[in-house]
Simulated scan of single mutants.
Amino acid sequence: MRRPFHHGNLRAVLLEQAEAMLRESGVDGLSLRELARQAGVSHGAPRSHFIDRQALLDALAEQGFDRMAEQVGAALRTPGPIRERIRLVGRAYVGFAVDNAALMELMFAAKSNDPAGPVNDAAVRLFTLLDGTLADSAGGRADDGARERFKLLFAASMQGTAALITSRRITPAHGETLVDDATDALLTSQLGAQVLPRR
């Protein structure tokens, strides 16, 4: 049965279908021909939006970073102390990574494949959100190096927690506790003191 779509939104339909295929079959199960079949269009139709399979994967990864940035941005805009907002960012990060495990793997693989392309630009937009909040909160006290180390350590902690959840080594509830513990440990560390004001 052909999947209906409105003229002009084929790209969005293809990306939605491709993400569903990614979730079910992983990267190896994604092909433009199968995508066209499942979307109910001619086998050549996807190529009007994605020149090849890699272009499709990059578009998925870029969209993933943009969606993740929306969730992180919402957490950062929550009223309250910066330390609590960073905790909410951690939970948003882990929640997205757990709910979209295959997409997360693709996002970071695609970023490393083309460090100067649109996927990297989308990743930079994501981490710039946190960087800007840290810079504003520090009132200019923290240098760029300290903020960069803080962001990387924070991301590593959140990705590690998400990996433990998706591999079923821990429960999601245990993961929330780890997010809080990791955030507290980082914020009260010497690095945290360099990045955020003591309060």
Rank of each mutant, 00 (worst) to 15 (best):
S42E: 11
N113V: 03
R33S: 07
R199I: 03
P4A: 11
V124G: 11
A109W: 12
D184P: 01
V124Q: 07
D184W: 01
F108Q: 05
L191K: 06
R11A: 08
D131C: 06
V72D: 15
L126F: 05
S189C: 13
D121Y: 07
P79I: 13
M68P: 03
D114C: 06
R2V: 06
L35G: 03
D121E: 14
L22Y: 00
L57I: 11
H6V: 13
G117D: 13
Q54I: 14
I51A: 08
G90T: 01
A163W: 12
A92V: 05
S48F: 10
R125S: 02
A109L: 14
A39E: 09
H49A: 08
S157A: 13
S137V: 04
A74C: 12
A146W: 09
I86E: 15
Q38D: 12
M68R: 15
L22T: 07
R23G: 02
G26W: 07
A135D: 03
T161N: 07
L57V: 06
I86S: 03
N100H: 15
P46G: 12
A75S: 14
R87P: 00
D180R: 00
P172F: 10
P4R: 15
H7A: 08
A162K: 00
L103C: 04
A123S: 05
L35E: 08
A182V: 01
E19Y: 02
A156I: 02
L130M: 05
A135N: 00
N120Q: 10
S157C: 15
E70R: 15
L56T: 11
L103E: 08
A163S: 10
T188Q: 12
A61Y: 10
G90I: 01
R85N: 14
G95V: 03
L14G: 02
I82H: 13
F154E: 02
R37V: 04
Q71V: 14
H6K: 07
A45T: 05
K111S: 15
L191R: 04
P4S: 04
A185E: 02
L76A: 05
I86A: 15
E24W: 05
D184Q: 02
A92C: 14
D28S: 07
P4F: 10
R147G: 08
D143Y: 07
R141D: 06
L106S: 05
S167D: 10
A110P: 06
T183Q: 00
M104Y: 08
G117S: 13
A102R: 15
F150N: 02
S25E: 07
R198Q: 14
L76W: 13
F108A: 11
S48C: 06
M107A: 05
L126I: 00
R169Y: 11
A135W: 03
T188D: 00
A45Y: 04
E176W: 01
A36R: 04
H6F: 02
F65V: 15
A162F: 09
E62P: 13
T188A: 11
E24S: 04
